[in-house]
Nucleic acid binder design. Structure first.
Length: 588
RNA sequence: GGGGGCGUAGAACAGUCUGGAGUGUUCGCUGGCCUGUCAAGCCAGAGGUCGCGGGUUCAAAUCCCGUCGUCCCCGCCA
């Protein structure tokens, strides 16, 4: 079918006979001579023919699939195109073969313009012909290969675990699959192979990894789909350091493959969870820029400003950021204050630092000169800088300033890659009076005593990998002692009977000489998306779903027949039936 | 579950605030001309349920109500 790809055509090949195949990217008909840009998966080359010899050249249209045979020749002087890698030469056609014709494409197949995403998804096979999308597919493939090579070199075994597993009510909503042999019973698609990879450790597997598809039936985001790919790994006789070193090797290798322009320096920076929360107001800080959060409670310890004093008395905090010399106006201040109120904060105090004068601020009259000077000093304020202060409950203040920081400071077109470990997460958190784990219930506590006596202060041996403010993955040292595992479930409020019925089989497995083990899972789609500079993981997933879980090309999901349902013992409540959208958004 | 943006020709948009004939821009498409273009050029032409439904009005792309789709965010995501 073809002897070369378009990107192989070069000046050195002048005089060579080649056969190429691909699509008509563009046709430029000059009457006596016709130029066709022939596109394949590697690029574009110009082919030339005369309508006198090839009358069908006039009937070629965009996206026709063609095969051409011809000779590579140097372009006439002055007709070279230095913008193309093979622009010094062109293919003089000896034989033209239209393999298949094409309808007029619904949107142009080129990087320069972009159609609406829904239309692109409906015609994804055309969208993927665009060079940018082809590059992303290729990048994803290279990343997969790099991960596998790196881990295979480290003697990891890729082991496939079941994708039809038992549903567990904890965590995200499961995607369910009905069982025909056991009507009324359901499989769940895995949210992660967590339990199976731990069982593999108990099975004597030394190093495990898997490129696995995981499923979580939760609402979509730019970085969240119903199904997604993880680099899942686990090692026996491992602790935190071995995991971190291995994950650094893997993501470092992928980064240097896809982004050779950026150097990833290992070992990666580490922050503890509490440092991250204090300085950045989030457990996934974007450290490509400063604007760190600074505690100011001591500055206002004896303040006469009632609003601040009240917050401190009730156990709250006062913290601030220096937003720098941003454009400031009354309107902007009002808009920001309204915004932080929508986020749940009581308010926002702003100050604009001045040369040789106390900061300008609506609350300046309530504060002493000493307090104003101390705040300015603490936040490193220079003339023109805008300082933003929040006085509130600790969690609210951290969250508010963390979001403000991102909104006001996050770099827009940065090429930088800032990987970061966040370590020492809390074991549990309290929400609505219930104790739930932050990571998952198989995470080892740093101290069993502390976990039992003061669970909400307990530190877990767990860690997250963060890239440019995006959570790339998380892992932990696992519990390998059945008694500790049982205790964790008790702290979560499970009765012994329930522990036995739901997790007894797993705890029993821990009772047969389980090795200490630890592991990690990297969100592969997110990693590739960030490295490719894509704004959403949909850009690096070949056939992604929309926000309502629809795959618009095949129109998935779809209803199934009564007979199919009958075999499964399932009846659908007609009041709940909603037909998924069956076309593009213009349907009424 | 909640907040916000968007929906106008095959594509990307302007027009919507302040109602007055489907008014327009760029690209694509069709036909013609053209032997060195490469986002070719020139000439001519076709192409519209202004997402859908209802209301207000002499008159609705425009105002109001509802609804569908889509995107972003909050909740949610062990």
């Amino acid at each position: 079918m073809r002897t070369h790809t378009t990107s192989q055509i070069s000046e050195q090949m002048v005089g060579a006979k080649v056969t190429l195949a691909g699509w008509v990217d563009r046709r430029r008909d000059h009457g006596g001579v016709v130029f066709v840009d022939l596109r394949d998966h590697t690029g574009i080359v110009q082919v030339v023919m005369e309508p006198e010899s090839f009358p069908e050249s006039a009937r070629l249209r965009r996206e026709f699939c063609v095969q051409v045979r011809g000779m590579i020749r140097r372009r006439p002087e002055g007709a070279e195109n230095p913008a193309m890698s093979n622009g010094m030469v062109e293919v003089e056609v000896d034989d033209l073969n239209v393999l298949s014709r094409s309808e007029e494409p619904p949107f142009p197949i080129e990087d320069r313009t972009s159609a609406e995403e829904l239309l692109r998804l409906e015609y994804r096979y055309l969208d993927l012909r665009r060079p940018r999308m082809a590059r992303r597919l290729k990048a994803r493939s290279k990343a997969l290969r790099t991960v596998r090579r790196t881990l295979e070199d480290l003697e990891f075994w890729e082991v496939e675990t079941p994708t039809l597993i038992r549903s567990t009510p904890e965590g995200a909503r499961d995607l369910l699959v009905p069982s025909r042999h056991n009507p009324g019973s359901f499989y769940a698609l895995p949210q992660s192979p967590q339990i199976y990879k731990q069982l593999l450790m108990m099975s004597g597997v030394h190093r495990y990894y898997q490129m696995c598809r995981c499923y979580r039936d939760e609402d979509f985001r730019a970085d969240r789909q119903l199904e997604f790919t993880q680099i899942d790994l686990e090692g026996a006789f491992w602790g935190q350091e071995e995991v971190l070193a291995t994950v650094e090797k893997v993501v470092g290798a992928v980064a240097s493959t896809l982004r050779p322009d950026q150097e990833v320096i290992t070992p990666l920076r580490r922050l503890t969870y509490s440092e991250a929360m204090d300085r950045y107001g989030t457990d996934k800080p974007d450290v490509r820029f400063g604007m760190e959060i600074v505690g100011l409670a001591d500055v206002f310890a004896g303040t006469g400003f009632r609003a601040f004093a009240g917050v401190l008395e009730s156990g709250g905090v006062i913290r601030g950021i220096n937003a720098g010399p941003i454009k400031w106006s009354r309107a902007r201040a009002d808009a920001l204050i309204a915004q932080v109120r929508r986020w749940g904060a009581g308010g926002l105090v702003w100050m604009v630092v001045r040369q040789d004068a106390p900061p300008r601020s609506p609350v300046a009259k309530f504060l002493s000169d000493g307090e104003l000077a101390a705040v300015t000093d603490r936040l490193g304020g220079k003339a023109g800088d805008v300082l933003l202060l929040v006085a509130d409950a600790e969690k609210v203040a951290a969250q508010t300033l963390g979001r403000l920081r991102l909104e006001l400071g996050a770099p827009q077109d940065s090429q930088e890659l800032e990987f970061l470990w966040v370590v020492d997460f809390p074991m549990f958190e309290e929400s609505d009076g219930e104790i739930t784990f932050l990571h998952h219930p198989f995470t080892s506590p740093a101290s069993v005593d502390q976990m039992v006596n003061r669970p909400l202060q307990a530190v877990a041996r767990s860690y997250d990998l963060v890239l440019n403010g995006v959570e790339l993955g998380s892992g932990s040292v696992r519990i390998h002692d059945p008694d500790i595992q049982r205790q964790v479930f008790r702290i979560m409020g499970l009765a012994d009977q329930e522990i036995e019925s739901r997790f007894g089989w797993f705890i029993r497995a821990l009772g047969y000489g389980a090795p200490p083990h630890a592991g990690f899972a990297v969100g592969f789609d997110r990693l590739v998306a960030i490295l490719c500079g894509a704004a959403s993981i949909r850009e690096i997933i070949p056939f992604p779903k929309t926000q309502t879980g629809v795959e618009p090309l095949s129109r998935t999901p779809a209803s199934v027949g009564r007979r199919q349902l009958g075999e499964l013992g399932i009846a659908v409540d007609p009041r709940r039936v909603k037909t998924p959208p069956s076309g593009i958004g213009k349907s009424g």
